[in-house]
Design a binder for these strands. Structure first.
Lengths: 198, 198
DNA sequence: AGCATGTACTAACAGTGTTAGTATGTCAAG
DNA sequence: CTTGACATACTAACACTGTTAGTACATGCT
C-alpha cells in the first residue's frame, strides 16, 4: 500500500515490491499465491477504511457518512477505485458491506428493488467522483490553481470561451473537491428521500 | 476497437493486434507512434460516439441526452471508462466537448463555478455507473437473472438476509440498467434545477 | 532506369509474472 | 548435541510485454 501510494499502482511489480522488502521477487510467492492475490488484498485493505458502522443513524446520515468516508479513501488511494473494477467484487468482505448498506435502506422503507436502485445510484456517484480528477500537476501545490492556470494558457484564444471562463475562475481560487462532492451527494440523497414518499 | 470489444482491453497487445491485421507487431510502428498513441486513438474513437449535438435543447434535455448517450457508449465498450482515467484528458477533442457542455449550463443561468460543479457531479455519475457492473456471468443470458441466482446460491444461509432478499428479487426478473440509470440521472437533474433557483 | 518512399521483416533488449529446483537458516524432538 | 523438518530465500529459466535498429522489398515518381 505504501508503494502504491508513493509510486503509483503501476509501480507495484513483484520485483519492485521485493526490492522494498529486501528480497527477490520469487520469494514473495512463499507468502502470496500470486499477484492477483496481492491486489485482492490491497483492494480489501483500502476498502476496510470505509466507515460502515451505520447502526442507529438515520438512513440519510448513514448513507452520507458512508459516502464521505468512501470518497476520502479514494482520494487517499487513487489506485483503489481502478483496482476494484478490474477484479471480481464478490468476496465475503464486500458481501457483508452490501448487506449492511441494503439493510439500512430497506429498514428505512425502500422496497427491495428501490433499495437496489438507490445503492447503485449512490455508488455510481461515489466511485465515479474521484476519477474525475485531472492528471496531477507537475510542480504545483495541491489546490489545482496552478493547473487551472496551465490549462487556461493552453486554450487557443477565443476558441473555447466557456472552458476558458471556468479555467480563469479556478486559477484564482482553489477548488474544494470535498464541498463539490457533498453538493452532489446532497442532490442525490434529497432526490431519494422524495422518491421514498412516492 | 473490435479486438478490445471482443477479447477485452487486456488482449489489445501489439502482437495480438498485428496478428489480427496479418502483420508482425513491429510493423505497427510505421503507422502509430506507440501504444499510448493507439490507446489515445481508441479512447477518442469511443468518445466520439457520445452525442453532443446539444444546440437548441433545454439544458436539462441536453444534459440528459448527453448522459444517456455516454452511458450507451460505456455499456457498449466497457474498456472505455477505464482507458479514460488512465491517461490525460486534456486533448483538443475533449476540450471541445468540455466547452460545449459548459456552454449549455452557463447559458442556462448557472454561474461559472456552479456550472463546473454541475458538470463534475453529472460526469461522476455517468462515468461511475457502468463500472458498477458485476463481473460478466459465464453461460447465462445478458439480463443478469442467472447471475443473481448464482449469487443467491452462494450466500451463506441467513447470514446476509438483505443481500439475499435483493438477489432473490432479481433472480426472477431481469434488471433494467438503463431505467436505473435514468432514475438516478433524473434525481441529479431535478436537484440541479432546484439549485438553479437558489 | 534510377531513386525515394513506404512498409514489412527479423533480431534483440529490458521489463513483466511465474515456476522449478536448490540452498540456507531456524526450531523442535530424540 | 544431533537430526530432521519446515519455512523461506535464492538462481535460472520461461513466456509474455512494448519498443528499437537494421534490413529487405515493392511501388510509383522523376
Amino acid at each position: 500500500m505504501e508503494l502504491a501510494d508513493e509510486a503509483g499502482i503501476e509501480s507495484v511489480t513483484m520485483r519492485e515490491l521485493g526490492r522494498r522488502l529486501g528480497v527477490k521477487a520469487a520469494s514473495l510467492y512463499n507468502h502470496i499465491a500470486g499477484k492477483d492475490d496481492l491486489l485482492d488484498g490491497l483492494m480489501n485493505l483500502a476498502l476496510s477504511g470505509i466507515d460502515i458502522a451505520l447502526d442507529g443513524l438515520d438512513w440519510k446520515d448513514a448513507m452520507r457518512r458512508r459516502a464521505v468516508s468512501a470518497r476520502e479513501v479514494f482520494a487517499r488511494h487513487p489506485w483503489a477505485a481502478g483496482l476494484i473494477d478490474s477484479r471480481d467484487r464478490r468476496g465475503r468482505e464486500s458481501l457483508a458491506y452490501v448487506d449492511r448498506v441494503l439493510g439500512v435502506l430497506i429498514r428505512a422503507g425502500f422496497s427491495t428493488a428501490d433499495a437496489a436502485n438507490a445503492f447503485l445510484v449512490l455508488d455510481s456517484y461515489i466511485y465515479g467522483f474521484e476519477r474525475q480528477r485531472p492528471a496531477a500537476p507537475e510542480g504545483n501545490g495541491t489546490d489545482g490553481t496552478g493547473e487551472a492556470r496551465e490549462i487556461l494558457a493552453a486554450i487557443p484564444e477565443g476558441e473555447y470561451p466557456f472552458a476558458a471562463r471556468v479555467a480563469a475562475e479556478f486559477s484564482g481560487k482553489p477548488f474544494d473537491r470535498e464541498a463539490a462532492f457533498e453538493f452532489g451527494l446532497g442532490l442525490i440523497l434529497d432526490g431519494l428521500e422524495r422518491s421514498l414518499g412516492h
